[in-house]
Design a protein around this nucleic acid. Structure first.
Length: 268
DNA sequence: TTCCAGGCGTATC
DNA sequence: GATACGCATGGA
């Protein structure tokens, strides 16, 4: 991890990163594009303006402490994505996907934030998901905790315009606040048990649970299958993804998802 | 107007 | 366990 301090900014040097690939591909929903290769957004309640491309990035108004404690982990800067792509390149389809978007990384998001975000993602589009989450955070002045949300009702959350998902958020908040679902514990459980734990929450099925495990708990063996990934599996992996990728197949999914959605999506 | 969006819960077989 | 259907909302 290479960086330097420049006044009140941090300059980050990282070849395996493009902001469009990580902040605007449906991994996180709290980032707004404010210019060419420039974004403003949040990790929980930490705001950041970041810009850059091709190996050099500026994190505006960021202390070294915040960089090391919040943003370096968030952008998973301790992981060598060149090495991962090298591993994946043993497979021809993955090699193409890795070549298509080399700036992809897995963001290490907060578990609760990811849970709320992906519950809202169900049968929804990214623009609306972002709108709902933005209204939620603006309403509270910060990203609300489970304790704050557990006293809400679908009616009191009407301002979110979240539709049928509002009742799922209330259920999630109640189960997390009461301890019936323990996110910290779930993060340590074996994969299948962790997934089952999350699925105790209404509105959390296999796909949302995998997204929370992957994006919110850095469980890289979680492999979310949505309509796009179903298409990838049917077209290229009829016999399943090669077993050798199991431990990090969630990161492979990011490359495949972006590839099929952008590349194939433009065909029709 | 109709269809669709990174699914899920429920009913039915 | 597999399959069909409704679901809130808003943009295309």
């Amino acid at each position: 991890m290479k960086y330097e301090i420049s006044g009140s900014d941090i300059i980050l040097y990282e070849d395996d990163l493009e902001l469009d690939d990580v902040l605007d591909t449906g991994q996180a929903f709290r980032w707004d594009k404010i210019g060419e290769n420039a974004y403003f957004g949040y990790c929980l309640d930490h705001p950041l303006e970041i810009s850059g491309t091709k190996g050099r990035f500026v994190l505006k108004n960021t202390s070294e402490e915040d960089f090391l404690n919040v943003w370096a982990p968030y952008f998973d800067l301790g992981t060598d994505y060149s090495a991962l792509r090298e591993l994946y390149s043993a497979d021809p389809v993955l090699r193409a996907a890795c070549g298509f978007s080399r700036g992809i990384r897995l963001l290490r998001q907060d578990g609760w934030e990811a849970l709320v975000s992906f519950i809202f993602s169900s049968n929804n589009n990214i623009t609306r998901i972002k709108g709902i989450i933005s209204r939620l955070a603006v309403h509270y002045g910060h990203f609300p905790t489970a304790g704050e949300l557990c006293v809400e009702t679908p009616e009191s959350l009407g301002y979110l315009r979240a539709g049928f998902r509002a009742k799922y958020i209330v259920d999630a908040a109640q189960k997390v606040a009461s301890g019936e679902v323990d996110l910290k514990k779930a993060a340590e459980l074996p994969y299948e048990e962790a997934k089952a734990e999350l699925m105790k929450i209404k509105g959390v099925g296999p796909k949302v649970a995998d997204c929370v495990l992957l994006s919110g708990m850095y469980r890289t063996e979680a492999f979310p299958i949505d309509v796009w990934m179903k298409r990838v599996m049917e077209e290229y992996y009829k016999d399943g993804l090669p077993q050798e990728f199991y431990g990090t197949r969630g990161i492979a999914q990011l490359y495949l998802f972006n590839y099929i959605r952008k590349y194939k999506g433009e065909e029709k």
